[in-house]
Amino acid sequence: MKRDLMGIVGAVALYALLMGLIESEVIGAFWQLNIVLICINIILAVSLNLITGFTGQFSIGHAGFMAVGAYLSAVFTVKLGLPYIVGILAGAAGAAILGFAIGLPTLRLKGDYLAIATLGLGEIIRITILNIPYVGGASGLMGIPRYTTFTWAFFLMVITVLFIKNFINSSHGRACISIRENEIAAEAMGVDTTKYKVIAFTIGATFAGVAGGLFSHYFYIAHPASFTFMKSFDILTMVVLGGMGSITGSITTAILLTYISAELASYPEWRMVIYALLLIVLMIYRPQGLFGNKELSLKLFSRILGGGQRGAAENK
């Protein structure tokens, strides 16, 4: 409880600092946009980490759930004229329902097969949206008001991280992790593996829906091309580079990769080439990701500073 409060106080302090910098125009429009993007990417990466990193179920369809959130929230605000919060909640709920409906049959599959099935489902979602004239078809749903502000993005990000962190550090979260570690043993320990896989998948999808709502209400448009499997790869990359099963790892890489993308924004092709090389080199030299399944914490810092012996042993 104390740690949670400290975390929230820290988050509010960070918010105040960034807000101050934005208000005083030290942070200009370009970086403000990227900070919002960072928040959205953190939500996406942390929520996928719950599915892939903690529960061990490869998913390359996260962009599909993001698309559902993006479109559904926009339908609620633009077409039905409802308040933003209703739109966000509707987007999240829609993604959750779809996540549940997709997860239930699909999560029987394992490893590669699950990965490609989710990839296919993500694409099916996108192609379906593409064929609905009501939401603009191939040209996208336009004229979405910019309701997403830094404040919205930041606090929804904090809520996501807290939600998933608390879930993981509970008996329910441990049940999910046990599935990743050894599914047969988890069953033998009384864990209803199907139920927990579906729970993790549904929670992950829900927050991807939230991220989608933030996304479409920041960029004025929901376009099918924003939610291809390349976007899913992007999110998966953040999770794997940060370390599967490390929330702080996902946060760090979400910040880092968004920052790198922003710095290289004027050379779009070089940006992708550098990004690709980074992926390959990092995977060859550190396949477990930056943090492995460890969390970045003050305790870890003091351990590293206080003598790397134990830390080194653990990394092995």
Binding site: H172, S178, N182, A185, A186
Partner: peptide, 23 residues
Amino acid sequence: IRLFSDLSVLDNVKIAYHFHVKY
């Protein structure tokens, strides 16, 4: 042997209490 090999010894045992948890 089928342990949860990347988890701590304590967590391995904690998972077994899972279905007794009421919260």
